[in-house]
Amino acid sequence: MKILVAVKRVIDYNVQIRVKEDGTGVVTDNVKMSTNPPDDNAIEEAVKIKEAGKATEVVAVTVGEEKAQETVRKALAVGADKGIHVQADGILEPLAVSKILQKIVDKEKPDLVFMGKQAIDDDCNQTGQMLSALLNWPQATFASKINVKDNKLEVTREIDEGLETIEINVPAIVTCDLRLNEPRYASLPNIMKAKKKPIEKIVVSELGVDISPRLEQLKVEEPPKRKAGIKVANVAELVQKLKNEAKVI
């Protein structure tokens, strides 16, 4: 079995986001970037499945600017065998990314595609589902447990009500939750080895997909600051206000 894992380069989750004064987006210059956290879980799971002898190859793919390949390099350092970097600049909507990934799937013919459930920058939560629609493959989103059985996967999904278990036939898409596993650290010798692993570079225009944006981002702004309300004199007044004024209890 061959597993393709999609990874995205995003602003590190520890960095406090700063909105640009001109409202065109957020500041990214000299800001620490990292792999989207649940994408790390996706890589980890793929590598674990390979280590368990149930997969033969793990391919990491990213779509984005030149430096996005750092995320592929990191995936190679924790066990991916091969990398693909689709070079594309500017804003890419999930629809465009899923069309690009569809082309990569056509080319690489993986049995499974893994990725994080959501990117922590645009918070869209779309790409995996869109890719499975385009491929007409089954999808298992928000996976917190994956059990590989022959040509099927049993996946436990984190849903609002609790947990849901589904069984999907391969080929399939899985989007990963942070609870799926604990990603390993890249060791120094593996980082050195990763430098020698191949990363195939594809310029997005070679793929012949329409990636033109369908959404126009009119403005990015800071969320409004919450204003202080009132101070109440005592507990009785507080409960009365919550009951009759705010109507929340």
């Binding site: 999930p94 629809l95 939560n125 995996g128 589902q129 890719l131 629609a133 928000f142 944006p213 369908r214």
Partner: peptide, 24 residues
Amino acid sequence: SANTFGKNLMPRIAAHLDTSQVSD
């Protein structure tokens, strides 16, 4: 809704309609 039900479902529809979804 953008809960786990809607998050799971809507992008699958949007991709079929060739529409860029607006989430959440």
